[in-house]
């Protein structure tokens, strides 16, 4: 196509993404590969090596730095302004003294491996190649070797499967502290404590990782250790499945008295001059 994209809605088997990456490495491909799946994402390559991976399943380097407050928002925004929308944000962050080049590189590499791990938990449906796609503002400049990435990713899945069973299924569970954890929380290490404080029963391990500004894989490692130490409970989100479309009648005993129905029809609560309440300042 003249805009630089190639449509290849190719029926992919789970092992084909590593194969795809290896062939792109041989081609010294530069650009992006967007992968569709239950946990999809975009892999950015430069001359066959991987610079960044973006996926809803794992925090990007940017999200990690900001959420963990390693770099404060005012400093971040100032660096973004100085670098400009297409400018070198990473160099600007280093030049302005907010982070060293080594530490920034480590964050980018860590985020890349984390994203690959999370995407490996889902089966890809198809992929699309785009030579013109811009690289994220923070990326691994040197580039990560695809073979090392896929080997490490497989190792991580195998390792976690030993303690968690199906990593994919466990990843969807909601975790909560055990009574034992709540009782002894003051004595636990800071990392375990932060996970327990974040485990509100609504959050999956991925959600906890995003909330803490940490990677999903390290959070899962900590959770698996905490499970062995009986500090954490988990439950599958059956209650979160989409409901059946049929309506159920309201049980009068359970509901407080309904407001008087407005003459215009519809049953939504309506503002009347009598019950106009002040906006909460919360």
């Amino acid at each position: 196509m003249s805009d630089g994209t190639q449509q290849q809605p190719h029926r992919a088997s789970p092992r084909n993404v590593p194969g795809l990456l290896l062939s792109l490495q041989q081609d010294r491909f530069s650009g992006a590969v967007s992968i569709a799946g239950s946990i999809g994402g975009t892999i950015h390559l430069h001359r066959g090596t991987i610079r960044a991976i973006e996926t809803p399943g794992a925090p990007t380097a940017e999200a990690l730095l900001l959420k963990s407050r390693r770099i404060g928002e005012p400093e971040w925004d100032a660096a973004c302004t100085a670098a400009g929308p297409d400018g070198p944000l990473d160099t600007t962050l280093v030049d302005q003294g907010h982070i060293s080049a080594a530490e920034l590189e480590i964050v980018c590499v860590g985020a890349l491996y984390d994203a690959a791990f999370v995407m490996a938990l889902s089966t890809p449906d198809s992929w699309q190649v785009d030579r013109e796609a811009p690289t994220p503002r923070l990326s691994h400049r040197e580039g990560t070797d695809p073979r090392r990435l896929t080997e490490e990713t497989s190792r991580r899945v195998r390792l976690l499967a030993k303690s968690l069973g199906s990593v994919r299924e466990f990843g969807q569970e909601r975790v909560r502290p055990s009574a034992r954890a709540t009782a002894g929380i003051g004595r636990l290490s800071a990392r375990y404590r932060d996970i327990l404080l974040s485990a509100d029963g609504r959050r999956s391990p991925r959600d906890i990782a995003f909330a803490l500004g940490r990677g999903v894989y390290p959070v899962l490692l900590d959770i698996s250790r905490m499970k062995a130490l009986q500090l954490i409970h988990s439950r599958s989100p059956r209650s979160l499945r989409p409901p059946r479309p049929a309506l159920r009648p309201a049980t009068p005993a359970a509901e407080p008295a309904a407001p008087p129905r407005p003459p215009t029809g519809g049953g939504l609560p309506r503002r009347t001059p009598a019950d106009r309440r002040p906006e909460s300042t919360g």
Partner: peptide
């Protein structure tokens, strides 16, 4: 390209007797 993390280790071997130094993630081991 220069690996910034490796450049940060340039002084690590300066101590007598030290033969190798590695920098890894404390949780993942990366």
């Amino acid at each position: 390209q220069v690996n910034a993390a490796e450049a940060a280790l340039s002084g690590a071997l300066a101590s007598p007797g030290v033969v190798g130094v590695r920098l890894v993630d404390a949780v993942t081991g990366l």
